[in-house]
Simulated assay, not measured.
Amino acid sequence: MKDVCVRGVRSARDLADLASVLGQAGIGLEGGGMWEGVAHYLVDDGVAARAALTTAGYAAVEVRSAVLAPLDADVPGALGRLMADIADSGKEIVAQYSDHQNRKVLVMGDSRVDGTAKR
């Protein structure tokens, strides 16, 4: 699974346009959301999603590999323990959200698909 990040998504109209572009390209959204002008969505095919969005004129599109982590949401502190383990590993998280199956979607700082990983 891939995380598609699009910057500059600031309104319901912007989000409707983005979702329409992806839908017309046959790309389903498996999780995600939009916060303060940045949209993150989980998709099967990040290359196709980026192609559809850039063809439609979106300039700021990033695609990263996503890690799907099961999390027992009914257990208090589960997210804290998961994040502590990741922090202890020295990994950077750039986004965290849930998918439609209640798994945590973790987008790591060094997981860009386009070969421009942060060093």
Rank of each mutant, 00 (worst) to 15 (best):
A12I: 12
A12F: 10
R13K: 12
R13S: 14
R13Q: 14
D14S: 10
L15A: 10
L15K: 09
A16T: 12
D17K: 13
D17R: 14
L18Y: 04
A19G: 12
A19K: 08
A19T: 13
S20T: 15
S20L: 08
V21D: 10
V21K: 02
L22N: 06
L22Q: 04
G23I: 00
Q24H: 12
G26I: 02
G26H: 06
I27P: 03
L29D: 01
E30D: 11
E30K: 03
G31L: 01
G32F: 02
G32E: 00
G32R: 00
G33C: 05
M34E: 11
M34F: 05
M34W: 02
M34K: 05
W35A: 15
W35K: 12
G37R: 03
G37L: 06
G37F: 05
G37D: 09
G37N: 06
V38M: 04
V38F: 00
V38L: 09
A39D: 02
H40A: 03
H40M: 06
H40F: 11
H40T: 07
Y41W: 14
Y41D: 02
L42F: 03
G46I: 04
G46L: 00
G46N: 05
G46T: 09
A48G: 09
A49G: 06
R50Y: 01
R50G: 09
R50D: 00
A51S: 14
A51V: 11
A51D: 12
A52V: 01
L53W: 02
L53D: 04
T54L: 06
T54N: 01
T54D: 00
T54P: 02
T55E: 15
T55R: 15
A56E: 01
A56R: 02
G57M: 00
Y58W: 12
Y58D: 03
A59N: 09
A60G: 08
A60Q: 14
V61D: 04
V61E: 05
E62Y: 08
E62P: 03
E62A: 14
R64G: 01
R64K: 12
R64E: 06
R64C: 10
S65L: 14
A66L: 04
A66G: 08
V67F: 09
V67K: 00
L68E: 12
L68H: 03
P70A: 08
P70M: 05
L71F: 01
D72S: 11
D72W: 06
A73E: 13
A73H: 11
D74G: 15
D74W: 13
D74M: 13
V75E: 14
V75W: 07
V75C: 08
G77I: 10
A78H: 11
A78R: 07
G80K: 03
G80A: 14
G80I: 10
G80P: 09
R81I: 10
L82C: 07
L82I: 14
A84N: 15
A84C: 12
D85F: 05
D85T: 13
I86L: 14
I86E: 01
A87S: 15
D88C: 10
D88A: 15
D88Q: 14
S89N: 09
G90W: 06
G90K: 06
K91E: 14
E92A: 12
E92Y: 09
E92R: 13
E92S: 11
E92L: 14
V94M: 04
A95F: 01
Y97D: 00
Y97R: 02
S98Y: 09
S98T: 13
S98V: 06
